[in-house]
Each structure stands twice: as structure tokens, then as C-alpha cells.
Design a protein around this nucleic acid. Structure first.
Lengths: 183, 183, 183, 183
DNA sequence: TATGAATGAGGCTTCATTCAT
DNA sequence: AATGAATGAAGCCTCATTCAT
């Protein structure tokens, strides 16, 4: 229980979370570059000076936000992939994770958010290639392409609405078979 | 010849260009959001007030920059694709255009730069699908995936070095055939 | 004539002087260390940002103030001393200069103001010693003692009122003969 | 023994001393005006709020520091002077006390430190004048001159190194006989 | 009594924009 | 048109001080 924590501790954690939440919102609205520390504070019930009891700069908040996201979501992103027996399962798990995740949190972190998962994805891909589940492609390039494409497709999905399951299927198919019609 | 222009006109065009060039540099260095009008002016031989004779905001400069880029590069991007007889030709033309383009200008426009080409690409794709050159996929999603993947792979190429021709071949193959090994 | 200056130039000089005058007053009132740039601006008809068109820090203002004072007052301080034929003339000229000067400007520069005159005084003293007008004393120590004593006596004079001429006579006598009664 | 004090008392005295010591250091480093209460706290193992259990302002600390110094050093400063039979003894005792004292503690109190001794010195001087040991001079002005000169000479001594005994002799001679060569 | 986090005032600096020259 | 200084709003950060624990 949280009630087990001394009150001071609880408030500190809560305030830290106020700042992270405010920052997430502000970064999503204005973009990281244009956001200001004041914007973050204003998105918070806290006083101006309080920010500096927790972070020393906007950059530090960004890092904390990325760490938080990585911690919370990386396992979820990778869980479906590791033991995927086929390329289709792998891709399907990947896209549905990303689409679900992006629907939950839009951090405005300008694609930084997903780079936390880059290393994992790459390892999983290398693994899959080694097992013969994938064609022998450059795992780095493939990871980059998959993440970027997934990120952008998720953005479109968020903006224009659309069915996640269907989008997952389409994306999976695209990367599974490519665009070339059977000869 | 430029000399054909009256001197006043020439100077106006030149100053406008000073500002656009300065802005391109500044946006690339700091990102659009964090850049300031002052930064742009400082990257210019002009005085502060002169900026407002040409543009009224940072945003207007961004638009002009995008228009400039679209005007200069869109034809180049699309030329190879319109009449492509095969999916392979289409993809190869697309990726090599993007990789070459990104090698020339890094605008720091946070992925905005390529959206100018989105509509074109989408039309071309629809066209290609209609001709049966591509599998019947959602042209919008495909355009998004291609642009995002190309952009990210270009970034990797720029950062880590690498051979453009080889990267083009790999990217083409990925989207042509997908990742699934032949059964 | 000032009217000969273009208007912009005139205003720039005037604003610079506003700042220097404001700073002199503020330093005198609060002391250099406790004074703030805002205090200086407030002692001025100018806007906050204008300060930075002229100086980049409080320290720079201090330097300008010292330079201004040195330029204006050093000659006056030394004029009476150089050719003094006797120690009495020398000391009398020195003390009356300092007392007059301190009555005019109280810079609050914490004794920095007079250090500009330290080198001059020391040279004059060495000269005087060489001519046999003074006993052969350490010119550096003597200069330090004279300046510090004069500064402090001037402060007392300013605070408690008193006659400058009389104070000059007393100070001169003290340093001329010392405190020892004739044996 | 300190152990004779109840523990509470001992800790209170110790904390008070922490603050005074921290303040002494901070004032010496930054000057009184520029020093902040936070600076003082940071120079201490104590928490911010604790400061206000002992003092209510920076100014109060300054006063306590001056009192402490006066208490510790005033007797030492005056002991040699009271019964001095000659002006030379008086001056010599005075200068050697000041030079020794300044070598021990540099408070950065911007000349405030010695003013604590001003009253004493003045009384001693009046006394000495009354006994005919000194010429009949204005005791206030003389005290001011002696203290200022001694302070400044001590500063030079500290900065440039030098022999205390020798400096004492020179200073004594200066104020004993003055600068005028015998006619 | 000691602690240390919260507060919001206020200092420092840069910014976008205007406007007299 | 071009210039560049003035303006004051607003961002950044630290401060003195309070007060719940």
C-alpha cells in the first residue's frame, strides 16, 4: 500500500509525477524544443521554484520521461516477439504493441520515445534472422525501418481514426510479403 | 541573367535568400521549436528589423522553406516513379531519390520536409496499384510507411556512413519482398 | 557642441550615462556586492532590457565607473603633488584633493575608487623621496597608509560634518610630524 | 569542561558556532553584501530551517560575528596599549596586534571587523594624549587614520607577503615621526 | 528542535517586435 | 528599404522564509 509510505515520501513521489505528467502533456502539445520549463510548471499545481527541487532542466525531465516509458513499456513491446515462431507472429506482435502503446501515451517526444526499444527490437530481429524466421537482412536497418514506419502509421491512425486490428494486419502483411504482386 | 533584374529586385531576392539560408541552418542546428527569430537574424548579415520586411514570423519562414524545398525537389523525387514499369523500379527510384536528397540538405525540419512529397507519392502509388504494378494496398498507409522508413534509414546512413547504392538496394528489397523467407 | 552629434549617437551616450549615474548611486547606497542590475535599471528611466545593450554585467559597469573616475580625477589628484617643494605641500595637496573629491562623489565602490590613484601616488612618493623631500620610506606602504587614512577620514568628515580645510591641516600635520611630542 | 554542559546546551552552542564559522567563510569569499543566507547554510552541516532557530537575518549574523571578534580580540588589541609609557610602545603594540590578528582571521567583513576596536583605541588615545605621551591631536581622527592605515597595510602584507616585525617597525616609525626629514 | 520541501517574489537575461533615423 | 536601439513581456533560476513532519 502507498499508505505505508511516510507522508513526505508520498508527496515527493506525487509531485515528481505531477511534473512528469505535465511535461508529457506539454511536450505533446508544443514539441520538446518549443516547450519551456514554465509551461511544464503551469501544467502542474506546483509553484515555480518547486520544479528545481526535482529536476534541473527540461532535458532532465525528458530523460526521466524516456526512462519511465522504457521501464513501463519495453517489456510489453518485446514480450510477444521473443519466442515468435514465424515472421508473421513477430510482425503482428510488434505492430499491435506499438499501435496500442501510442494510443495510450502520446509523448510528443519526437520519436525519441521509441528509440528506447530500438536495441531490443534489433536483438530480437538478429535472433529471428539466426533462427531462419526472417530473411537475412541488416537487422539495424530493418529495426529502423520498422520503428519509423510503425510510428508514422500509428500517428496516422491516431489522427484519422481507424481500426487497430486492421492496421496491424495491413502493416504485418506489408512487411511480410512486400509490395510486389506474385509474378 | 540576374543582371537583367533591376537592382532593387535583386537585392530583395538576395536578402530573402539570406534569411531562408540562415533559417535552414538554424533549424538544422537547434530544431524548429527551439529556434528563435533572433537566431535566424544572427545567421544573416542583416539587421533585426529587416526580417520583418520579408516575413512576419518563424512559422512563415518554415513554410517558405518547405515550399522552396518542394519546388526544388518534388519533381526530382517523383520523376523516376511515374512511369516505373515494375515495383522494383518504383522503389529503387524512390529510395535513391530520398537518400540523395537527405545527403544534400539537412533541414532539421523534424520530418516536415518530406511531407511535402507525401501527396505525390501517394498518387503515384495509387497509380501503380491501379496498373497492377503493386499489390492492392492502402496507398496512404504505404506512403506513410515508405516515407518514414526512408527518412529514418537516411538518418542512419548520414550518421553512421554507408554506401547509398547498397542502402537503396537493401531498402528496395525489403519493401519489394518483405522479410518472410520463401516457404 | 553636442548638437553636432547625430541624434542616435547623442541618445546612446546619454543612456550610457544614465546607467553609470544610476549605478554610482546604487553602489553608494547598497554597496557593490548587494547591488543588483535591476537596482541599477530602476535608478534609470530606461527599460530592463536596455541595460544589456550597454553592459553585460554589473562588473562591467563597475569597471566603466572606475575608468570614468580615473580619467576625470586622477590628474586632479596628482596635479598638486608632482612639483611640491616640501613634504607639507605634498601632503596638503593630497588630502585636500581627496577630501574634495569624496565630497563630490561617493561611489560606494568600497575603496576601489581610490586604487586607481594608487600607482600615481606611489610614483609621486618615490619621486619625493628621491628628491629628499620625504624621509626614505617604503613608498608602497606609505601610499597605502595615506590612501586608507585619507579615505577613512573623508568618510568621517562626510558623516559627521566638519571643516575640510581644518581636516586637511590636521591630517597633514599628523603625517608630517607624527604623534610624538618633542622630547 | 564542555561535558559539564547538558547535552542540549552543547548542541545548541555547536550549531550556533557552525553558522558563525560558515558565515565567516562565506563573507570572506563573497563579501558581506553578495553573501546569501543560503550560502551560509550550505557552508554548514545544518538544514535550511535551522538557521532561523539561531538568527533571523544575515545582518544578525554579522553582528554576532563582530561581537565574537570583539570579545576575543579587543583585549588582545588593547592590552599592550593601556599602560604604554611612550608613543612608540603604544604604536608598536597597536600595529603588531593588528597585523597578527589579520593574519589569523580574514573575515571579509569589509573593514567592519576593526570598527569594534575603534572605541577602545580612541579612549586609549585620549588617555595617552592626556598623559602627554602623544601630541594633542583629535583622537577620533587619529583612531580612524590608524585603523584604516593598519588595515590596509595588513592587507598588503597578506597579499604580498612580508615580515610582520619589519612592517610593524616601519608603520610605527611613520606614525611616530611623520615623513618630514629633519630640517 | 532539526529537517528539508514548498512557496512565490524577484533577480538575470533574452526575446519578438516596433520605430525613429 | 535597411538599420539597430528601445521596449517590456516572459523565460530561467535562486532566494528568503515558512511549516508540516
Amino acid at each position: 500500500m502507498d499508505a505505508a509510505l511516510p507522508k513526505r515520501q508520498r508527496i515527493k513521489l506525487q509531485n515528481r509525477q505531477f511534473i512528469l505528467d505535465g511535461a508529457r502533456k506539454v511536450f505533446a502539445e508544443r514539441g520538446y524544443g518549443a516547450a519551456t520549463v514554465r509551461d511544464i510548471i503551469r501544467a502542474t499545481p506546483l509553484a515555480a521554484g518547486t520544479f528545481y527541487n526535482y529536476f534541473t532542466s527540461k532535458e532532465e525531465v525528458r530523460e526521466a520521461l524516456n526512462a519511465e516509458m522504457a521501464q513501463a513499456l519495453r517489456p510489453r513491446l518485446s514480450e510477444g516477439r521473443a519466442q515468435a515462431a514465424t515472421a508473421e507472429e513477430f510482425l503482428s506482435a510488434f505492430f499491435s504493441s506499438v499501435f496500442a502503446l501510442k494510443a495510450e501515451v502520446d509523448t510528443g517526444l519526437e520519436a525519441v520515445d521509441l528509440t528506447a526499444g530500438f536495441g531490443d527490437l534489433r536483438s530480437d530481429l538478429e535472433n529471428a534472422v539466426a533462427r531462419g524466421v526472417f530473411l537475412p537482412l541488416d537487422a539495424g536497418a530493418l529495426a529502423a525501418a520498422l520503428l519509423a514506419a510503425a510510428d508514422e502509421m500509428a500517428r496516422r491512425l491516431a489522427k484519422e481514426g481507424g481500426d487497430t486490428a486492421q492496421a496491424t494486419a495491413a502493416a504485418t502483411l506489408l512487411f511480410l510479403r512486400g509490395v510486389q504482386p506474385p509474378l
